[in-house]
């Protein structure tokens, strides 16, 4: 059980970091989601891994499993879900505006690929 959880946390983190270092927004967002899954599992494991025990004190049971990390995981899941929603919307806006979903690309890079420079006049400032 411990090995399974440890391997899952490690695997998810490794995949998340790899994807996050890509240049396009879509893999980066996937990577961030994988990282948040990894950390959710990690928080869950921080209350010790106990099999088939209730999260409350009960005289008929042999012991209990710590309920606090489960509550923390719930909070973390909700927050990371909301944050992923926000970054998806932002990346979508950025993609619609710039015509590609490169996370970071200067005009020189674009010229090297034969693409037109980004529209710099439309920054929303009063000009």
């Amino acid at each position: 059980m411990e090995l399974l959880i440890a391997a899952a946390v490690g695997g998810l983190t490794a995949a998340g970091v790899y994807l996050m270092l890509r240049q396009r927004a879509f893999p980066v967002i996937l990577g961030l989601s994988l990282l948040s899954y990894a950390v959710n599992l990690f928080i869950f494991a921080s209350g010790r891994v106990a099999l088939a025990l209730p999260p409350i004190l009960d005289k008929t049971q042999a012991g209990y499993t710590d309920p606090l990390p489960q509550a923390l995981v719930l909070t973390a899941i909700v927050i990371s879900f909301g944050m992923t929603g926000v970054i998806v919307m932002m990346a979508l806006g950025s993609w619609l505006h710039a015509g590609d979903d490169r996370i970071d690309m200067t005009d020189d890079d674009r010229a090297a690929e034969g693409q037109p420079p980004r529209d710099r006049t439309a920054t929303g400032d009063r000009a």
Binding site: M20, A38, I79, M83, G93, S94, H97, A98
Partner: peptide
């Protein structure tokens, strides 16, 4: 706020950076 390409691009980077920070 106010939109625009440069701001959205900087915004995506800012969020990605801070999401890693939250993790």
């Amino acid at each position: 706020h106010g939109g625009g390409g440069a701001r959205l691009k900087a915004g995506v980077q800012y969020i990605a950076f801070n999401l890693v920070g939250s993790t």
